[in-house]
Write a protein that binds this DNA or RNA. Structure first.
Lengths: 338, 338
DNA sequence: ATAAAAAATGACAGCGCTATCATTGTCAGT
DNA sequence: ACTGACAATGATAGCGCTGTCATTTTTTAT
């Protein structure tokens, strides 16, 4: 264990350089451009680094090179697994390329989002990944001034110039509604909570399809702002059946609510799908296991993460980006519950 | 919008200083020690900062002050909500104190953990929060050399000198086993997957209790290394009932498996709890909603995050830390499934 | 053997910020 | 008016690293 010069007690490049008898810049090169340093020296430096437990100081590195190798990712929530999967995909791509992902959760709030943008901008990220397009103007301004590439996830850009990777929430909800219609249901309800832009887009998709079928009835829509949960699904099903008892199918805006509804049906002895068809959205892993198994829309969450990360990477490194918008589609998973 | 000097195009302290006609250090002070700068000047600086979209560069700040205001948090997984809650608690405490949390997921692998420790050490964190005590020796060495405070979460320290916040996994599993015994069950099985140290501790707790009752039978233990999931719970229940058909209670090492088992019982028409009692561990939100509702152990996940963060904070700021080990206990939630 | 090219290494400055110490201005108490 | 205390601001240096442009050494081609 050699002596340390630095104020922190941590080993520095300088320490390593002294120990191996070369200059600091050469040590730096041994890590960043190993091919530019002789085999033998590289090994000696590596050895010394291991001995001292040397770890490069990213702050200094970022400052000197003007590349932080950080990318910031903002998601609305981790409390359902949807975004966990997206983040997993993002992380995988960036780790492979030596970038560090910094993740923040904004709880579906544009205000919290702005605070996070500010907090993460302080890390001088080389790029940023945001969920959706629902940002404050002041946030947008901050991002413009930062001058870093931004890619939006989950929704598709309605505006020129924005990069986005996702799928059409509306089209997916239309597809599900049409599926229920194709099963002969006539009194199809839509139940949603946590009314973020994606939920509202699903609501529009439902309406489009149901109006087109000439079956729209406003009292079969139940929208509440509360945070989604399985427990809430049970509550909302009860409430719906009070206000529209003859409903023969319910399309929930996500699988959590749908699962809660399924449990409530079990408890009340409501036959699914005979008396009531139940559908969800997202296709969480559990939805295949429920009894009855849940009809839902499989969303490309992991893929959105991967593709958004790749797009951002290309933007950062100046590689060509063929399309500003990538639509990854969705799939209907028709199961026992309908 | 004023001109920018910096190489990145981002506004710097220097730019702000020029704009307001003061020195850079004064601008720095206006942000860090506002009370040391006159009211009027502070306002002008703030105004200029807002106009330019100035965001402090943490890298430079960390380098100069030798305090990164980062803390690193390593958890094994986010794919069940257990650690999401813990992380939420941690984040809350640190955000209040101006620290930035950097989170990494090690997928229950000590090797990945080491890679993450190295990656996060590069951020020169002021402290680190780790899950459990299952680290490689080389990881421990890295951490020692870094010379920053470490707090371990979820398990309680068996070794001198280590700081920890958690609860006794063994005692909790014993309590659950005793609960099943108290319900008159004689042929109690234990089923686990993802055999991390905490799962194994639960297995020991089960064994202690069941051996003490004189009812231990090795063929009622089913331990598999696969990752936990609801689907796996169904599979494992089937397998268990093949190898030990007369089992009258199953204690699953977590709620995910138990839920899968509950679904499988529904499918097969196995009466729960009459024919078979089912218990889980963790008390996820959904466990209250299942049919039948699931008996489980409520673990203080959020509180672990909060208390661990507080302890680490005290360690960082040099405040007194009364106890090196905080046991937050657990609670039995006896519900319909037993 | 010699020139030219390539590989290996180093000197220096500076990234954006803050710790430290110095300076100037302001005001109460005598 | 004069000292001392305090408030407000500034000058300087340096945190640990890397970009840039030398310089030295080795290899290759003639």
């Amino acid at each position: 264990m050699a002596s340390r010069a630095s104020s922190t007690g941590r080993a520095t490049l300088e320490d390593l350089a002294r120990l191996t008898g070369v200059s600091a810049i050469t040590v730096s090169r041994a890590f960043r451009h190993p091919e530019k340093v002789s085999e033998d020296l590289r090994r000696r430096i590596q050895q010394a680094a291991d001995d001292m437990g040397y770890v490069r100081n990213r702050a200094a590195s970022a400052l000197a090179s003007n590349r932080s190798m950080n990318i910031a990712v903002l998601v609305p929530s981790l409390s359902n697994l949807v975004f966990v999967e997206t983040v997993t995909g993002i992380e995988k791509v960036f780790r492979e390329h030596g970038y560090q992902m910094l993740m923040g959760v904004n709880h579906y709030s544009a205000e919290e989002e702005e605070a996070l943008v500010r907090a993460y901008l302080a890390f001088a990220p080389d790029g940023m990944l945001l969920t959706g397009f629902n940002h404050r103007d002041s946030t947008r301004r901050l991002l413009e001034q930062a001058g870093i590439p931004i890619v939006h996830m989950m929704e598709l850009s309605e505006r020129e110039g924005a990069y986005s990777v996702g799928f059409s929430q509306e089209a997916a909800a239309q597809t599900m509604t049409e599926h229920l219609l194709s099963r002969g249901r006539q009194r199809i309800a839509f139940v949603a909570s946590q009314l973020d832009p994606r939920t509202l887009a699903r609501n529009r998709g439902y309406r489009d399809a149901i109006i087109r079928a000439g079956l729209y009835e406003s009292h079969r829509e139940l929208l509440v702002p509360d945070q989604s949960s399985v427990a809430l699904g049970a509550v909302l099903l009860k409430r719906l059946l009070e206000q529209a008892p003859d409903t023969d199918a319910v399309f929930f805006c996500n699988d959590d609510l749908a699962q809660g509804a399924l449990f409530e049906c079990l408890r009340q002895g409501i036959a699914v799908p005979d008396r009531l068809a139940v559908a969800g959205f997202n296709d969480l892993a559990i939805s295949e296991c429920t009894v009855p198994s849940l009809t839902t829309i499989k969303t490309p969450r992991y893929e959105v993460g991967v593709e958004a990360a790749r797009m951002l990477l290309a933007l950062i490194e100046g590689d060509p980006v063929p399309r500003k918008m990538i639509d990854l589609g969705f799939q209907l998973r028709a199961r026992e519950s309908t």
